[in-house]
Each structure stands twice: as C-alpha cells, then as structure tokens.
Amino acid sequence: MVTFTLNGKDIAFDGDPDTPLLWVIRDEAGLTGTKYGCGIAQCGACTVHLDGMPRRSCVTPVSTVEGSDVVTIEGVSGAEAAAVQAAWIGLDVPQCGYCQSGQIMSAVALLQLVPKPSDADIDNAMAGNICRCATYVRIRRAIHDAAATLEG
C-alpha cells in the first residue's frame, strides 16, 4: 500500500508498486490533465509537482512517492499558477493543447524558483517539454508576461 496526497486529497494505492505515478493519476484517480507523451522522460507532457518540485510522472514508480504531496494541473494553485495560466490564456498559447499541462507545470515551477527568469533561464527550465505544434514563441512570451504580473 502506497499512501500520498494528490491535490491535497489522501490517496492509498494498493496496486503494483512499480506502476508509474502517471498511470495511477490517470487510470486510477481519473485525473486526465497529466498526459502520456513518451514514457521515457523525454517530452515532459506528464510533468507534475512532487513535494513542490517538477517531476516527470512517467518515470516515477508510485512506490517512490510514499508520504509525498503530488500536485497535478487540476490542483496547481497559488500566485505563480494563476499568473501563468492567465498569461497562457491571454496569448492563446495552446494549439493542439496536448502538451500544455506539462508546459504549465514546468513554467509554474520555474517561476516559483526564479521570479523573473531570463531567456536562458526559460530555455534551461523548459527544454524538457516538447511541443510538436512548436508553440514555443508564445510559451516564452507567456512566462515573461506571468513574471511581469507577479512583479506587480
């Protein structure tokens, strides 16, 4: 039995402890905002926050999150999340939209650590999130916009 919190709710999972967190979140908890894209930590579509830090859930056995707090796109909150999502909406960042939960989770984590990121900071933090629609121009702009909002 693995216990952890998912978006603040207590979770007890008694299935295969090797199950990647991604599939527990999607198949068992029914939260489908977190996406499968590659299964090998190459694309970032499955990014969640594990104890406040970004984590690729596709390569995270659920057994390793015992006692942790897991936050998904459905539960992400706070000033950074609000600013990022508002900026995303303001710039119409998404195209197909499939990768955007992961992009947003990475962007929120970046802003929580670096309130006013440079272009290089954005490159370094976001290089693990693939967008096949190549919405990168707007992702970059949206992160700068969100930083400006947070600065007030």
Binding site: T32, G33, Q85, I89, P94
Partner: peptide
Amino acid sequence: LPKLDTVAKSTGRAVFTIDVQ
C-alpha cells in the same frame, strides 16, 4: 479573437481521446 479552446487547454480540462474513460 481569442480562441475558443484556449481555456480548457490551459487548465488540463480539455478532453482528448486518451482521456476518455
């Protein structure tokens, strides 16, 4: 005009085939 699918796709609420349960 703002796109109609942007909000759902910026909040994890947009449903794709893989999300159908």
